[in-house]
Design a binder for these strands. Sequence first.
DNA 1: AGGCGACACTTGACAGTATCAAGTATTTTC
DNA 2: GAAAATACTTGATACTGTCAAGTGTCGCCT
Lengths: 184, 184
Amino acid sequence: MLRAAVDYISQNGPDGLSFRQVAADAGVSHQAPYHHFTDRQGIFQAIAREGFAMFVGALRNVDNLEESDRALSLLERYVDFAVEHRGHFRVMFRADLCVMDEDPELQAIADDAFGVLVSHATAILGPGASVDDIRARATAMWALAHGLATLLTDGPLEVKIGQIADRHAFVRSVGMQTSLTNPH
Amino acid sequence: MLRAAVDYISQNGPDGLSFRQVAADAGVSHQAPYHHFTDRQGIFQAIAREGFAMFVGALRNVDNLEESDRALSLLERYVDFAVEHRGHFRVMFRADLCVMDEDPELQAIADDAFGVLVSHATAILGPGASVDDIRARATAMWALAHGLATLLTDGPLEVKIGQIADRHAFVRSVGMQTSLTNPH
DNA sequence: AGGCGACACTTGACAGTATCAAGTATTTTC
DNA sequence: GAAAATACTTGATACTGTCAAGTGTCGCCT
């Protein structure tokens, strides 16, 4: 049932998603989903949870890589996740669809994902860096990755810059332009 | 009428927007908007048009600034626009809400906005830069700005990194971390 | 002056939607 | 084997976008 919803979202976006249609696709009555997910919002929350769990998994263990490659790998993985799980990704960062405030578990797992970024920013900037610098660096990496992912999945990037032949190479070349790999 | 719709969107997001509610707020019958904007999609297209027009206006003339300040100013203006016109911004980059393919005028004005980024990237990298480098640099700036704007307007940025006291200073400090101001 | 056509809007109807409420099996648990 | 939780079901309500056809009102042309 979740699977059906995610599939729909990845193709048509989250907005047109019909609770009833999902039920029909799963071959049950129109109230069956309402029993599992309390709300229409509930189904998005469930998707976001699953998504963030996978997301953290994709980002974790980046520390095992060679240091010079970590920032680019992080960027690459972030974008990869968005493209490969666009159904989940489209929901995860939409505050209007899944309100994290009401779901502590979701909040916790999202924190984990951000934690990866912060620890990475800390490692790159070294022990001497100020809290503000680390915060700024982590935000910069997040914003770059998130912007790229968003523009690729939903936005008009390919419309504007033309078809992208090799996504991995492209993402890396974009990352190189920002020298986020360097200490300062 | 557009005003009412934009106000609603800036507060509640574009998804819950009800054609009928907008009409009621404007004190007309439920079919009056349908006369002005052919579609529910039509109202989003109108908002996107208005938005991109303002957007280009906000980004233009960044060339007049001192060269070292251009990249940061561009970033700052991009984010400013998103925050100050969040009602428009939330619609402009949602391909599912306003399909640009069917609106050449909208497409043209969006091209203008991207043109500012490209010309800026070209100027920074100098005449010797390859097309791929310029493309990558323009994308990097766009992604950073867009990601930051998105995370600020819709995303969980402030939830994760804490309240931002001075937005302008923060945006600039994030921009500094990426050295997008430098040639390479 | 009189008519005419564009425009701005209205009422009415239809199918589809989320959601509330209350019912019915089936499965698990004690 | 009874009770309770689980997984559904049907029915009804209020709201939504959209189609269709009507009403008034203004400016303009003859």
